[in-house]
């Protein structure tokens, strides 16, 4: 199974970058426009799934291997927990305290800018990383399982 026809391959090689960029945009601008980490992560996973459907599983695994997805998943989860735990050490002590925004408020007003809202964009990026990696990992694992089960059937018959 080496993917689909040349039409699908050439179109998806153009579109994959746009989908990836849109996922990054949705994730990073989550505190200004509708969207956020979860939706952005799903769109990031969709770009890799398009790659997998069009070019075959091996090509997608060369770009983002199964081990790397599980590492990114753990990194995203730990980053989110780290952002939450940083609230203990900076500013007013507490879990999930928006310490960056409290520091910025004393200085200049940064409302409605890309770099604003303190820890919310950091949390969005962490959740986007986690959701995207884990959903792509699920699809990869399911396709591995499918290939193995069909190979087993052929052996039996």
């Amino acid at each position: 199974m080496k993917g689909m026809t040349i039409i699908v391959k050439s179109i998806s090689s153009w579109v994959k970058m746009l989908i990836f960029l849109f996922g990054i945009y949705i994730t990073i601008f989550g505190h200004l426009t509708p969207g956020g980490g979860f939706a952005g992560g799903v769109i990031l996973a969709c770009s890799f799934i398009l790659l997998m459907l069009a070019f075959g599983r091996e090509y997608a695994e060369e770009n983002l291997s199964l081990g790397l997805t599980s590492k990114l998943d753990c990194v995203g989860a730990l980053l989110f927990a780290a952002v939450a735990l940083c609230g203990f050490f900076f500013g007013a002590a507490g879990f999930f305290v928006n310490f960056l925004h409290q520091e910025w408020q004393a200085g200049q007003a940064t409302a409605l800018k890309l770099v604003s809202a303190g820890t919310i964009p950091l949390s969005n990026i962490a959740i986007g990383l986690k959701v995207g990696a884990s959903l792509f990992m699920i699809v990869l694992i399911l396709s591995v399982f499918r290939c193995d089960s069909s190979a087993g059937k052929q052996e039996v018959s």
Partner: peptide
């Protein structure tokens, strides 16, 4: 919070 998106 400084976030324009109230849901976030």
């Amino acid at each position: 919070t400084g976030a324009a998106n109230a849901v976030a």
